[in-house]
Design a protein around this nucleic acid. Structure first.
Lengths: 137, 137
DNA sequence: GCCAAAGTTAGGTAAACGACCCAACTTAAG
DNA sequence: CTTAAGTTGGGTCGTTTACCTAACTTTGGC
């Protein structure tokens, strides 16, 4: 279903950010870029969009960094995709032509299946099961 | 889920071709292009790929034209998409980075939902319900 | 046997998009 | 006030999309 590399990058980095949850540490761009093998110059842009989209928070200056804005299990893949790749869900098929309406309806059906599945998965599903919250460390 | 215009065009035209089923008439490019509002110069290319993909058949020369290779209810939208937009279903997400495997698994899950829905819909679902086969005309 | 109506094929193109890179700027801790 | 971090705005380069053009081939009918 042709998802952009950008979405993959975002999800990988968010999964990585999920590992910081429970600790008081903030993640830096370079650590994230290295751990998830994302080009750091591109990651800058992605993190920015995630912040504007309310998925993550950031702090500037020395000791700055990024953290998830919410718990991993309340951030769905749908939320992320909508922020990183708007137009993935907002694009309506055209109703032109004699069969336009029927085709549009069918494609919307397929799109809904995609959308619902994306809503049912959260960042927690992207994180290692054995690595629970680190409160006790 | 960002489907190409090309796929929409193909589906509209195939739905139109479905209306010719049961008659002995072949559809010409220009009629199809006009009925479904598809640029005819582009449609030429699409019809060619559909023929090479075994979705439709064609006849050359005067009295030539196009027809569905099979009954509308055995041609799924998945079949069409695979022919018109290969790479839609063949593309595997990367497993790079620490979270690559988990992300790939989740995205494949979403992709499967999309794929299954596309397999469950056929050209018949794109055709007007009241217009049954025209054998009796 | 020609001619005209159809499909076939190859190629080309302009605009948009994707995946980056770079540099100047701002903030905040020590 | 220096330095490590995030912020912002821009630029670039290759690919893809959505077309168009034109030459070619096949077929039916006069």
């Amino acid at each position: 279903m042709k998802l952009s590399l950008k979405v993959e990058y975002a999800l990988r980095v968010l999964a990585q950010l999920g590992r910081y949850q429970g600790t008081s540490k903030l993640a830096h761009i370079d650590s994230l870029a290295e751990a998830e093998e994302v080009p750091s110059n591109y990651l800058v842009q992605i993190l920015n969009e995630l912040r504007n989209g309310g998925i993550i928070t950031s702090r500037r200056g020395k000791q700055g960094g990024y953290a998830l804005a919410k718990e991993p299990d309340v951030i769905s893949l749908y939320d992320v995709m909508r922020v990183i790749d708007p137009g993935l869900f907002t694009s309506e098929p055209s109703r032109a032509g004699q069969s336009g309406a029927h085709v549009a309806q069918a494609l919307t059906l397929i799109g809904s299946a995609f959308e619902e599945k994306a809503k049912g998965l959260t960042l927690r599903d992207l994180m290692p099961k054995d690595a629970g919250p680190m409160y006790y460390i």
